[in-house]
Structures are given as C-alpha cells and as structure tokens.
C-alpha cells in the first residue's frame, strides 16, 4: 500500500509539473527559419518550424548557414545563427519594449500565432473591446480602410465600400472655405486620382449620402512633396525585418498602413499577395485595397 501511495504521489508531481509547464505562456514564438533547425523539448527532438512555442526549458539548435528569428513575448525580434541555445539564455536578449514602429506588427503576429483561453470572469479588463455608445464621427458606410488620416504623394489608392451611392466632398483644411470638389460615387472612391491633382498641403474630406445632408466624419489628408514623402517612407521601411520576400513585403505594407501611408502600403500588400497567393492573410489584406 505504501509503495502504491508513493508511486501515485510521484506520478502526480510529474504530471502536474509537465502540465503546468505546458500551460504557461511561451517565451518565444518561432517567426522565421532559414536552413535547418531542431527543437528539443524535454528530450523529444523535432524540426524547428514557424509558430513553434518555445518555453524556458526548451533548447534549439540551428545548423550551419541557418538563421532563426524568434519573436519575444515583449513583441521584439531576436536573430540566432548556427549553434545550440538554451531558450532560458536567450530571454535576456529580448528588449523590454518593442520598437515603436514594429511593436504593433509583432503584437499582431503574436496574436495570430497564439491564442489564449481566458474567460471574461478571470480577467475582465482584457475583454473590454466593446463600447456601448455611438460616435458622432462616423462614416455613412463601413469602409474597407482606416481613413482618418492619409499621407499621400502619388500612386493608386482606392477606398471601397459595399453597394451604396455616396457623395465625396473635399475641402481645404478649414470648413469655412468653399468646397473644392464634390463627386458622386458608387462603391469606390478613386482616392489616388483625386489626391494626385492636389497641391501639397492639408485637406479635409468626407463621404455623405447622395442628398449631401447626412455626412460622415471629416477625415484628414496631407499631400506631401515627393522628396519629403519618400524620406518618411524610407524611415518606416528601415524598421522592416527581412525574412522571406513575401513576409518582408507584408510587414512593409503593414507598417506603412499603420502610419497612414496607404498608397504606399498598397504596393507592398500587392507584392506579398503575388509572391505567396496561397496565404489568405496576404490576399485578403490586399483585396481591401482593390
């Protein structure tokens, strides 16, 4: 009887330890693997692959000529090259906070690759995504793109919605000034062709119902000179982590969209979708701009 009790106790401890280790949050997610790599989880070895969860006790090995990008829990990225690494020794290489430009992107990737099972009762503050109020800054229809602010210089940019005629009104940046342009539209605002003819400067625009009485909120448009625009785009693209061509293009588009350079983002999303048409995230993201 004593022996059975002892075995049961050992079994319990082992079981719970293993279970708790697995249920904790990972320290890293594998973001990119070039070449060969292996993952050692408590003696079980498997090929290292994208979206693997890495815990403190795990070890990874990267073959000669290989390269692995690991996404830290803090939304920054670290690169490891050939060699063997204990995951616990890599944790200190994560920056406390993600880079301002890339944090949102890696946060998005982390959520795409992992999911939590928390309930509202356990942590209600994480579930406060729904506000029970209307905004008086709304659009007359749901638009496919975030248009509060757009920085523009050149290039095609379409803003789409579903099956409704709308009126586009463009103003100089004070409402007191005369409306510069009014266009009747159906499903698409060819924003690029309108904005391309504007002088550099600030403008406001809105979409209204065809009678012109009920309008959505005013949105901000800044037309920027080519050189200045390019400099800003380059500074954003400097933050892009180069991995596969498709992923690099997608990340470029994502960061540009986050910073309101929508026309520029379109080009990169298109590139990502054409490089990897089987990736639904790439293609669906690009379809928003068509």
């Amino acid at each position: 009887m004593k022996r059975i009790t002892k075995y049961l106790a050992i079994f319990f401890v082992l079981w719970n330890t293993a279970a708790m280790a697995q249920s904790a949050s990972p320290h890293f997610l594998v973001y990119y693997v070039k070449g060969k790599g292996t993952l050692n989880k408590a003696g079980q070895i498997s090929a290292l692959k994208k979206s693997d969860n890495l815990y403190q006790a795990d070890k990874i090995t990267v073959a000669k000529g290989g390269e692995v990008m690991l996404l830290c829990a803090q939304n920054s990225l670290i690169k490891v090259t050939a060699g063997s690494y204990a995951v616990k020794n890599l944790i200190s290489r994560c920056k406390p906070d993600g880079e301002a430009f890339t944090a949102a992107y890696f946060h998005y990737i982390w959520h795409q690759m992992s999911h939590h099972h928390e309930k509202v009762e356990d942590n209600p503050e994480k579930f406060m995504k729904t506000a029970g109020a209307v905004a008086r800054g709304k659009q007359p229809v749901e638009l496919a793109l975030p248009v509060d602010t757009i920085y523009y210089s050149s290039g095609a940019l379409n803003i789409n919605w579903k099956e409704q005629k709308l009126l586009f009104k463009l103003y100089a940046d004070s409402l007191a000034q005369v409306t510069e342009k009014t266009i009747n539209l159906e499903k698409t605002l060819p924003f690029g062709s309108v904005a391309a003819r504007l002088e550099p400067g600030s403008y406001l625009w809105q979409l209204c119902h065809p009678d012109g009485k009920e309008c959505g909120s005013l949105n901000y448009l800044e037309v920027i000179e080519k050189q200045s625009y390019n400099e800003r785009v380059i500074s954003i693209l400097k933050q892009v982590i180069k991995t596969t061509d498709a992923e690099t293009a997608f990340m470029s588009g994502f960061l540009l969209e986050q910073h309101h350079f929508l026309a520029e983002a379109t080009k990169y999303y298109k590139q990502a979708a054409s490089l990897d048409p089987s990736n639904k995230i790439y293609t669906n993201t690009y379809y928003r701009f068509l």
Binding site: F127, K129, T130, A131
Partner: peptide, 17 residues
C-alpha cells in the same frame, strides 16, 4: 466614464467593469 462592457468581441455582453 468609459462606455466599454466586458465580453468577447462581437460576443454576448454579460459583464461590466
């Protein structure tokens, strides 16, 4: 005051903070 409720996005609103 914040108008947010607590619940899954597009889910049933059963709680408030």
């Amino acid at each position: 005051g914040f108008a947010n409720f607590a619940g899954e996005k597009y889910g049933v609103m059963r709680h408030f903070v």
